[in-house]
C-alpha cells in the first residue's frame, strides 16, 4: 500500500537518520497557542507531528498527557478548533501531521465527517489507541474512503501472528508501544524492548515501524530506534511545555524557543541556539 506518510518516513530512514515523531496536545496550554507550538516543533526538526485530540478519559495516557488534556478541555478546546489548527499548520508546512485521540469524540463527531474533515485539513493519518484493528471496522472504512492512514499499535504482548495481521491492515506506519504501560512510562531495562522491536521489524512487510511511550531524550531515540525507522516522543515534550509555561519570567518567544530547542536536541543530540 502506498502512503505518503510511509514514504516520507522511509525517505528519512533511507538518508541514514531516524524519523522523529513529536506529540503535543491540541489546546495545551491554550487553544490560541497550539499553532505556534506546532511551528516551533516543526522548526526544531520533527519529521512528523502528532496532534492530540483531548479526551476526558484518556485510558492509555500517563500523568503528563492526562494533565495536558484536562487543561486543554478546561480552556474549551473543540474538535473543530483542532481541525482548524491542523489546516493552518499543514497550509504552511510540508511536515506530515497526524491526529491522535480516543474513539468517543470521533463517534460523536461522526466517523465519515471526522475523516473527511481531517483529510481536508491536510491530516495524513489518525491514531486511536482504544480502537482495535479489525477487518472492515467502521473506523477503517471511513479512513480508507477519505484517504487517511489509520495507524495501529502493537505492544510487547502482541503475538507474531497478530503483528502480521496489524501490519496488513495498517497504513502510514505501525506504532510499537515500547513497554506494557501508559504513555510516559519508565522504559526500565532496554534489552527486552530491543529484542521485541527487532522481532517486530522482521515480521513487518508493509509498513515502517516506529517506537513510542517513555522516550525522553536523543539517547533514548537512538537506542530505541536501533531496529526501527524512528521513534515518537510525547509526554517528555508535554512536560517541558508545562514547565516553560509555568515559568512566569519567560516571554512567549522564549517559551517557543524552548520547545524548538528541546525538539532539536531530540533529533540531533545537540541543543539549538
Amino acid at each position: 500500500m502506498s502512503s505518503a506518510l510511509a514514504n516520507h518516513i522511509l525517505g528519512v530512514a533511507a538518508s541514514g537518520e531516524k524519523a522523529l515523531g513529536v506529540f503535543v496536545t491540541s489546546g495545551f496550554p491554550t487553544p490560541a497557542e497550539t499553532l505556534s507550538i506546532l511551528n516551533a516543533i516543526d522548526e526544531g526538526g520533527a519529521d512528523f507531528i502528532e496532534l492530540g485530540m483531548p479526551f476526558s478519559d484518556p485510558l492509555a495516557e500517563g500523568l503528563p498527557i492526562q494533565h495536558s488534556s484536562k487543561v486543554a478541555l478546561k480552556a474549551g478546546i473543540t474538535m473543530k478548533q483542532t481541525l482548524e489548527t491542523a489546516r493552518k499548520f499543514t497550509a504552511g508546512s510540508k511536515t506530515p501531521l497526524v491526529l491522535m485521540g480516543y474513539a468517543n469524540p470521533i463517534v460523536k463527531y461522526g466517523l465519515s465527517n471526522f475523516f473527511r474533515d481531517a483529510r481536508s485539513s491536510g491530516v495524513q493519518g489518525v491514531i486511536l489507541p482504544d480502537v482495535l484493528p479489525e477487518q472492515d471496522s467502521p473506523f477503517l472504512l471511513a479512513a480508507r474512503e477519505n484517504g487517511v492512514d489509520l495507524i495501529n499499535l502493537i505492544a510487547p504482548t502482541t503475538p507474531e501472528e497478530r503483528i502480521r495481521f496489524i501490519d496488513s491492515i495498517s497504513t502510514g506506519f505501525v506504532y510499537a508501544v515500547s513497554v506494557t504501560g501508559v504513555t510516559g512510562s519508565d522504559l526500565g531495562s532496554k534489552k527486552p524492548i530491543q529484542t521485541y522491536l527487532k522481532r517486530a521489524a522482521e515480521i513487518l512487510g508493509h509498513n515502517p515501524l516506529l517506537v513510542g511511550f517513555g522516550i525522553r531524550s536523543h539517547a533514548d531515540v537512538v537506542e530505541m530506534a536501533e531496529h526501527t525507522q524512528g521513534a515518537i516522543v510525547g509526554s517528555a515534550l508535554v512536560a517541558v511545555i508545562d514547565a516553560l509555561w509555568e515559568d512566569g519570567s519567560l516571554s512567549s518567544l522564549d517559551r517557543l524557543k524552548g520547545v524548538k530547542s528541546f525538539v532539536h536536541e531530540l533529533k540531533y543530540g545537540i541543543s539549538h541556539g
Binding site: 476526558s56 478519559d57 469524540p105 470521533i106 460523536k108 463527531y109
Partner: peptide, 21 residues
C-alpha cells in the same frame, strides 16, 4: 444519554456535544 465509547465498550453514555464524558 446517547451511544458512545467508555471504559472499553460501546453503550449509552452521559456526554456533551464534543463527546467528552
Amino acid at each position: 444519554g446517547e451511544p458512545g465509547v467508555l471504559h472499553g465498550a460501546m453503550s449509552y453514555l452521559l456526554q456533551d456535544a464534543e463527546g467528552q464524558i
